[in-house]
Amino acid sequence: MGLHELPKLFDFEVVSSEDLKFMPMSVRFNLDRFGLRISLAQWQMLPHADRVLLARFPVDDDAALEPNFDHALFEMMRTHANLEPEWFTPDPQPAWRDTAAVPDGVLNQCRVAKLPALDIAHWAQLEPFKRYVLTKLARKPEGNHDFVPAMREFGLTG
């Protein structure tokens, strides 16, 4: 599986991530699936061209399909920040993979945003990366400013 031609950005991310000052969801997804963690400050130490390259990596649920994200990130961090990403053990069964239950955090974000609760049928029909995004946006109890725009972009609310 090859790199995308352009960085993978959702419409709701364009304002905050178009210049890649902030980590787009595609990069966050790949960090999480490989069990890597970098801070925003470390991300911003990378040259823009490197951030663009990292945002072009596929967002497939199978890390074996694209094993070079982690290698690229390590090389970039060593070269430009003289650091290495932190390792952590990824959750083998994250909530976004479960198509039989909408995660509590997502339901909470719907309540906070005064949206109807997302039903299981709509949740199950979402592609895995979109389920990941909603779950990531819903990880804190307070409202996330990108949650409603993401729900709208994914066709889950009017």
Score class of each variant (00 low, 15 high):
residue 34 F to Q: 12
residue 34 F to Y: 13
residue 35 G to L: 13
residue 35 G to Y: 05
residue 35 G to M: 04
residue 35 G to P: 00
residue 35 G to A: 15
residue 35 G to E: 09
residue 35 G to R: 08
residue 35 G to W: 04
residue 36 L to P: 06
residue 36 L to V: 08
residue 37 R to M: 12
residue 38 I to K: 01
residue 39 S to W: 07
residue 39 S to C: 08
residue 41 A to V: 12
residue 42 Q to A: 07
residue 42 Q to H: 10
residue 42 Q to Y: 01
residue 44 Q to H: 02
residue 44 Q to V: 04
residue 44 Q to D: 02
residue 44 Q to S: 02
residue 44 Q to L: 02
residue 44 Q to K: 08
residue 45 M to P: 04
residue 45 M to R: 12
residue 45 M to E: 15
residue 45 M to C: 13
residue 46 L to K: 00
residue 46 L to E: 00
residue 46 L to D: 01
residue 47 P to W: 05
residue 48 H to W: 01
residue 48 H to F: 02
residue 50 D to T: 01
residue 51 R to F: 02
residue 51 R to Q: 07
residue 51 R to W: 01
residue 52 V to P: 03
residue 52 V to W: 06
residue 53 L to E: 13
residue 54 L to E: 08
residue 55 A to D: 07
residue 55 A to E: 07
residue 56 R to L: 03
residue 56 R to I: 01
residue 57 F to G: 01
residue 58 P to T: 14
residue 59 V to K: 02
residue 59 V to P: 00
residue 60 D to F: 13
residue 60 D to A: 10
residue 60 D to R: 13
residue 61 D to Q: 09
residue 62 D to M: 14
residue 63 A to W: 06
residue 63 A to Y: 01
residue 64 A to W: 10
residue 64 A to M: 14
residue 66 E to W: 07
residue 66 E to A: 14
residue 66 E to Q: 14
residue 66 E to R: 13
residue 66 E to G: 10
residue 66 E to H: 14
residue 67 P to R: 04
residue 67 P to M: 03
residue 68 N to E: 05
residue 68 N to S: 10
residue 69 F to M: 15
residue 70 D to K: 05
residue 70 D to W: 00
residue 71 H to Q: 07
residue 71 H to P: 01
residue 71 H to D: 04
residue 71 H to R: 09
residue 72 A to D: 11
residue 72 A to W: 02
residue 73 L to R: 00
residue 73 L to F: 06
residue 74 F to G: 02
residue 75 E to G: 04
residue 75 E to Q: 09
residue 76 M to D: 00
residue 77 M to S: 10
residue 78 R to I: 04
residue 78 R to M: 07
residue 78 R to K: 05
residue 80 H to E: 03
residue 80 H to C: 00
residue 80 H to D: 05
residue 80 H to V: 02
residue 82 N to M: 11
residue 82 N to W: 07
residue 84 E to M: 07
residue 84 E to N: 07
residue 84 E to C: 01
residue 87 W to Y: 07
residue 88 F to M: 04
residue 88 F to V: 11
residue 89 T to F: 12
residue 89 T to K: 10
residue 89 T to R: 08
residue 90 P to T: 15
residue 90 P to L: 09
residue 91 D to W: 08
residue 92 P to I: 09
residue 92 P to F: 09
residue 93 Q to C: 06
residue 93 Q to A: 10
residue 94 P to Q: 10
residue 95 A to P: 01
residue 95 A to D: 12
residue 96 W to C: 03
residue 97 R to G: 06
residue 98 D to W: 00
residue 99 T to H: 06
residue 99 T to K: 09
residue 99 T to M: 08
residue 99 T to Y: 07
residue 100 A to P: 02
residue 100 A to Q: 15
residue 100 A to C: 07
residue 101 A to E: 15
